[in-house]
C-alpha cells in the first residue's frame, strides 16, 4: 500500500483503485447521508441513549447472522428494528432517565453483548469478526452489503423527507402537535425504526461501540452552530459525510482502524466548535461589561 502523494486527484485515484475501497466509500457515503440526517433528529429529540442502546442490541444480531451464514447486515437490521419496536411498544422514553429503567436497560445491554459473544464463539469464527462489529472496519463490505445499505439508506431518507417536519413539530411541541392532528406516538415509534435502520448500516463502518461518531456527533455539532432546522439538518449531513470520507481515507493510508479516525475527527470537530462558541460568548460578555463600565463612567 502506498502513502498519500498529497496530490488530491492522484490520492483519490489511489484510494479507489481497489474494489473493497470502492465499496467502503459507497457504503460509507450512504451511511453518512442517513446517519447525518437521522442524527439531527436524534439530538433534537434527546435520544442519544436510545441510539446507543439499539447499536448494542445489533451486535448479537450481526453475530447470529454470521452463525446461520447470512450477511451480518440482515441480522443487524432484524435485531435493531425489533428492539426499536420493543422500545416503542413499551412506550417509555428511555432517555427520560428513570433510575429503575436505566438499570433495566443496562442489564438488557449487557445480556445482548454477552449473547453476541456466545454466537461468535459458537461459530468458532475469528476474533477479527467480533472486532469489526465492535469497532468498525473498511475491509469486509461486500457488494451485497452495499446493495442492502443502498436500499436501507433510501428508505430511511425517504421516510425522513416525508415525515421530518411532523417529527420536528412532535419533538418540540408534542401537545400542540397532537391537537393539530399529528399522531405523536406512532411517529415516535416510526422514528425509532428509522434510527434502528441507521444504526444497522452505520455499524458496518464504525462498529457498535463507536456509533456516536456518526449518529450523534454530527447532529450535536450542527445544532451548536445553528438553531435553524433546515440548515442544521444539512450541516449535520455534511459533517457526517466529511468525517466518513476523511476517516476512511486516513485509515487506508495509515493502515490503522477506521473507527479510530472517524471518532477522532468527529470528536475534534465537536470540541473545536464548542471552544469557538465558548470563546465568542466570553468575548461578547466582555464587550457588555466594558459597555456597562463606559456607561457608568459617563
Amino acid at each position: 500500500m502506498q502513502g498519500p502523494s498529497w496530490d488530491l486527484v492522484a490520492d483519490v485515484q489511489l484510494l479507489l483503485q481497489f474494489h473493497f475501497m470502492q465499496n467502503a466509500f459507497v457504503a460509507g457515503t450512504l451511511v453518512a447521508l442517513l446517519a447525518g440526517a437521522a442524527g439531527y433528529f436524534v439530538v433534537l429529540r434527546g435520544q442519544s441513549f436510545a441510539a446507543h442502546m439499539l447499536s448494542q442490541v445489533g451486535f448479537p444480531g450481526a453475530a447470529g447472522a454470521v452463525l446461520v451464514h447470512v450477511a451480518p447486515v440482515f441480522g443487524l437490521v432484524a435485531f435493531c428494528v425489533a428492539a426499536a419496536l420493543g422500545i416503542g411498544w413499551v412506550g417509555r422514553n428511555v432517555d427520560a432517565g428513570h433510575r429503575a429503567e436505566s438499570a433495566a436497560v443496562g442489564s438488557i445491554l449487557a445480556f445482548s453483548l454477552g449473547l453476541g459473544l456466545l454466537f461468535f464463539r459458537l461459530y468458532a469464527g475469528s476474533a477479527a469478526g467480533i472486532y469489526g462489529f465492535l469497532f468498525g472496519t473498511i475491509l469486509g463490505i461486500s457488494d451485497r452489503d452495499v446493495q442492502l445499505t443502498f436500499v436501507v439508506a433510501l428508505l430511511g431518507l425517504g421516510a425522513l423527507a416525508i415525515f421530518g417536519r411532523r417529527l420536528v413539530f412532535a419533538t418540540v411541541d408534542p401537545d400542540v402537535a397532537e391537537a393539530r392532528g399529528v399522531n405523536v406516538r406512532l411517529l415516535s415509534i416510526g422514528f425509532l425504526v428509522i434510527v434502528a435502520l441507521s444504526v444497522a448500516i452505520t455499524v458496518q463502518i464504525v462498529g457498535t461501540l463507536l456509533i456516536f461518531a456518526l449518529l450523534v456527533a454530527p447532529g450535536a455539532s450542527a445544532l451548536q452552530l445553528t438553531a435553524r432546522p433546515v440548515r442544521a439538518l444539512a450541516l449535520s449531513v455534511l459533517l457526517s459525510l466529511g468525517f466518513t470520507w476523511l476517516g476512511v481515507a486516513l485509515a487506508y493510508f495509515s493502515d490503522l482502524p477506521v473507527g479510530f479516525f472517524i471518532s477522532t475527527v468527529s470528536f475534534v470537530a465537536y470540541v473545536a466548535i464548542r471552544a469557538v462558541k465558548g470563546a465568542s460568548a466570553i468575548r461578547r460578555g466582555n464587550f457588555q461589561l466594558r459597555g456597562a463600565w463606559f456607561a457608568a463612567e459617563a
Binding site: 433534537l44 416525508i162 415525515f163 417536519r165 411532523r166 420536528v168 413539530f169 418540540v172 411541541d173 400542540v176 402537535a177 393539530r180 392532528g181 399529528v182 445544532l223 451548536q224 445553528t226 438553531a227 435553524r228 432546522p229 442544521a232
Partner: peptide
C-alpha cells in the same frame, strides 16, 4: 436548539407531510 420563529412556523404547517 430551535428558533422561536420556527416554532411559530410549525404552528402553521408543522402537521404537513
Amino acid at each position: 436548539r430551535i428558533r422561536a420563529l420556527d416554532l411559530v412556523r410549525l404552528g402553521l404547517d408543522g402537521d404537513r407531510l
